[in-house]
Amino acid sequence: MKKSITLDTFDENGASLGKKRFYTTLDNKESINKWLKTFEPTTDSILGILMADSPDFQHNNHIAILNFMPTNNQMKNTITPNNLIPTSIYFSVRHCIKATWINDRDQFLSPNTKWEKDTEFHSDCLAFMLFHGQNRITCKEGINHFIPFSEKDIDAAEAFESYFMQDFLQGKIKPDSKSTDSKSLFKDELDFIPTKPLIFSDEAKEVLQAGKELFKHYHEQTRDSKDYNPNAALYDIKAHFQGFNDKGKMNPPQKAQDEAYKQKLGELNYTLKNLAKKIEVKVYEYGFLLK
């Protein structure tokens, strides 16, 4: 039996979209969901919840970061410091490539081991996850542990409730009882807590800078309002400027009245797209998807 078949693909107007390989067997490769489950949370420091679903493109819109455990039947994974990096990788791998009618049945797989030493890839995925729209962390439902900036960076008027993400990026999270090799970025091969400041690619730095400008704009515009919250997450900032419709769904950015906000959000989304293209290359290199 053939393991794959390659077909020509065309759009609705008959224009060629190139060739697409479809796999009839994956040679018993494990799914990305089983891979993520190997990174079990080992502490009581719960940062949030990853909501996941079947490992194919058609279910990617269900992949989200939340404050609390949802009550649906989808896969949930508790996020703690030791599995934050693998969770970020899972999230980014699932969201960096747009779902289409051509790829919607493609399966996300357990990767080869090359990703483990690629610390720039780790940092890229963390930056991507922090500012992606499916990061639904909100300070209205609990402590926001996902602010990567200091109060001074974004002109916050009050102290944050959590400095976890700042400390994580700087390699300041307190090690557990395991021995630490000062020459290594991480405490051991399966515990992805940095012991040194993370190094970001140029694309990830642009995301962080655009994110900082968006956060700073929120604090500058709302610090004197009754709705101001120094712990606002990306979701809270979008909610503030965009509002919600009568069905409780957030309005699109075009509904926002603040033109500067729309510009800064557009710049953030542009940098996210550039970072997504960089991550996409590694998705195939490390075997999360088959070409």
Rank of each mutant, 00 (worst) to 15 (best):
H62L: 11
L50Q: 09
S123V: 01
I85S: 07
Y90H: 10
N73I: 10
K117S: 11
P55T: 00
F108H: 04
H59E: 05
N72W: 07
S123P: 00
F68W: 13
Q58K: 15
K117T: 10
H95I: 02
L66I: 06
I85V: 15
A99N: 12
N77Q: 13
S92C: 01
S110N: 13
I63S: 07
W115D: 01
N103M: 06
N112V: 08
N77W: 14
N103G: 06
N73G: 14
R105H: 14
S88L: 07
M51F: 03
I97M: 06
I89P: 07
I85E: 07
L66V: 05
I89R: 04
T78L: 11
N61D: 12
K114H: 02
T78K: 12
T71H: 12
S92H: 02
E120F: 13
T80Q: 13
K114F: 01
N72F: 04
D118I: 01
H59Y: 12
K114R: 04
S123A: 14
T100S: 10
S123K: 04
P86D: 05
A64P: 02
P55A: 02
Q107S: 13
H59R: 06
T113V: 06
Q74H: 15
S110E: 14
K76M: 08
D56S: 12
I79H: 12
K98T: 12
T71M: 11
D56R: 12
N67M: 04
P81K: 08
L109S: 04
T119Q: 08
T71W: 11
T87I: 09
F108M: 08
N72C: 04
I65V: 15
P70A: 05
L66R: 09
E116C: 01
R94C: 08
K76I: 03
R94W: 03
M75V: 14
M69G: 03
H59P: 02
A52F: 08
N103K: 03
H95M: 10
N82L: 13
N67A: 08
H95G: 04
I65D: 06
T100W: 00
N61G: 04
W115S: 00
S123D: 01
F91H: 02
I65E: 05
N112G: 12
I79Y: 14
M51Q: 13
K76D: 05
D124Q: 07
L126T: 00
T71C: 07
N61E: 10
A52C: 11
I49K: 09
C125H: 05
F121E: 00
R105D: 14
L84N: 05
L109T: 03
D118A: 00
M51H: 09
M75C: 11
D118S: 00
C125P: 01
K76Y: 12
S123N: 06
Y90R: 03
F57H: 09
L126D: 00
K114I: 01
S110T: 14
C96S: 08
P81I: 02
C96F: 04
I65C: 09
W101L: 15
H122C: 03
H59K: 09
M69W: 12
F108L: 09
